[in-house]
C-alpha cells in the first residue's frame, strides 16, 4: 500500500518478459469475442470477403467486379455470371492502456512493475501473432523542468506496432515509463475513444481507485465498440493493510490526508469497503460484457496469462 522509496525499475524488455515466460506464452494468441475488420492483411478472419484461399460464398456479378473472381464453372452450368467470394484474413488491433499514475508505484511488489510486465507480455503475444498493437500510458506528463503537465489523461502512446521486430521498441517504451502524477480516467478514456481508429481488443490495466469514478470512462470506451478487458491490479498491502498506530495517511497523487487510529474494527471496515468497491466494479463490467478480473501484484505472470486470461477467453 505504501509508496516504495527508490524502486528498481526494469531496464529492457528482457527484464519485463523473461525467456521462460516467453517460452510459455509464445503459443498463445489473442482472442476476441467479436470479429472486427482489420486494416491490413493478417492472420485473423475478417468480416470482409477477401482474397484468402477459403471459399465463403457466391454473389451475382455486377458491373465493375474483378473478372478474375467470376466462377466460370457456374457460368457454364447456368449461363449466369456469379462472383466467387473468399474469406478475408486481417490483423486484430490490441490496445493496451497502462495506468502510470503515482498511486501505481505503491505496494510490494509494485503494482506498476506488474502492469509493465503484464502489458509487455500481452503486447509480445500480440506482436508475435501479427496483430496491431498500440500501447497508451494514462497519467500526467512531466515537462523538462520536472513539472507535471496535464496532457488530457494520456501521457504517451506507442501506435500500431506489428510483428516480432517491434518487440524491442515496445519494451523500451514500457521501460521508459515512470509512474507520476494523478490519473484523470474520464478524460483519458474520452480522448482514447475520440482518437482511436479501428476496433479491437482493449486491455485496461489499473487499480481503478479513481476518485472521480470509473463508470463514465468505461462507458466512453465501450461506446467505441471495443472488446474491453479490465484488469484491476491491487497490491497485497491494499488487501491486507500492514498499518498500525496513529497515522496520517497521505494520498500520493493529490496529497489528501486521512487521520486514522488503526484498530481492529477499522481494518475490518476497510476490508469490507474494499470488497464492496471491487464487487461494484465487477458488477459494472459484467453488465456491459466487459471482461473483468482483479489480481494482486504478487501474482505470477504466467498464471495471469495461462490461467486467468485464458479462462476468460482473452487469450487462447
Amino acid at each position: 500500500m505504501r509508496r516504495i522509496e527508490n524502486p528498481t525499475r526494469p531496464r529492457t524488455i528482457d527484464d519485463l518478459v523473461t525467456g521462460d515466460l516467453i517460452a510459455r506464452v509464445t503459443r498463445l494468441d489473442l482472442a476476441s469475442r467479436k470479429i472486427f475488420a482489420g486494416r491490413m492483411k493478417g492472420e485473423r478472419r475478417s468480416k470482409k470477403r477477401g482474397e484468402s484461399v477459403e471459399f465463403a460464398d457466391h454473389r451475382p456479378y455486377v458491373r465493375g467486379d474483378d473478372l478474375r473472381h467470376i466462377d466460370w464453372n457456374i457460368y457454364g452450368r447456368l449461363d449466369r455470371l456469379f462472383m466467387k467470394l473468399f474469406l478475408e484474413e486481417e490483423d486484430l488491433s490490441l490496445h493496451i492502456i497502462a495506468d502510470c499514475s503515482a498511486s501505481m508505484d505503491c505496494g510490494e511488489p509494485s503494482k506498476f512493475e506488474f502492469i509493465q510486465k503484464a502489458a509487455a507480455t500481452l503486447a509480445y503475444i500480440g506482436l508475435v501473432n501479427m496483430n496491431r498493437v498500440t500501447l497508451s500510458a494514462m497519467g500526467d506528463a512531466v515537462n523538462e523542468e520536472g513539472q507535471l503537465v496535464d496532457v488530457g489523461g494520456i501521457r504517451s502512446t506507442l501506435r500500431n506496432l506489428r510483428g516480432r521486430r517491434r518487440v524491442r521498441e515496445m519494451g523500451d517504451w514500457l521501460c521508459k515509463l515512470d509512474p507520476q502524477g494523478s490519473t484523470a480516467f474520464d478524460s483519458a478514456a474520452r480522448r482514447l475513444a475520440l482518437t482511436r481508429q479501428g476496433k479491437g481488443v482493449m486491455v485496461v490495466l489499473s487499480d481503478f481507485f479513481f476518485k472521480e469514478g470509473y463508470e463514465r470512462g468505461l462507458r466512453y470506451l465501450l461506446g467505441r465498440g471495443y472488446d474491453l478487458v479490465v484488469i484491476q491490479v491491487l497490491s497485497p498491502q491494499e488487501v491486507e493493510p500492514d498499518l498500525g498506530g496513529d497515522l496520517r495517511l497521505r494520498d500520493v497523487e493529490d496529497g489528501d490526508a486521512a487521520e486514522v487510529t488503526i484498530s481492529g474494527p477499522l481494518l475490518k471496515r476497510y476490508k469490507a469497503n474494499l470488497n464492496a468497491y471491487c464487487k461494484q466494479l465487477h458488477s459494472f463490467c459484467i453488465r456491459r460484457e466487459i471482461t473483468f478480473l482483479t489480481v494482486q501484484s504478487d501474482l505470477a505472470l504466467d498464471a495471469l496469462m495461462l490461467d486467468y486470461l485464458r479462462a476468460r477467453g482473452v487469450l487462447r
Partner: peptide, 17 residues
C-alpha cells in the same frame, strides 16, 4: 503526534472513517 504514511489512495480510508 500522528505518523505520516504515504499510501496509494485515501479513497477507501476516507469512506471507512
Amino acid at each position: 503526534r500522528r505518523r505520516d504514511v504515504e499510501i496509494s489512495t485515501t479513497l477507501l480510508w476516507k469512506k471507512t472513517i
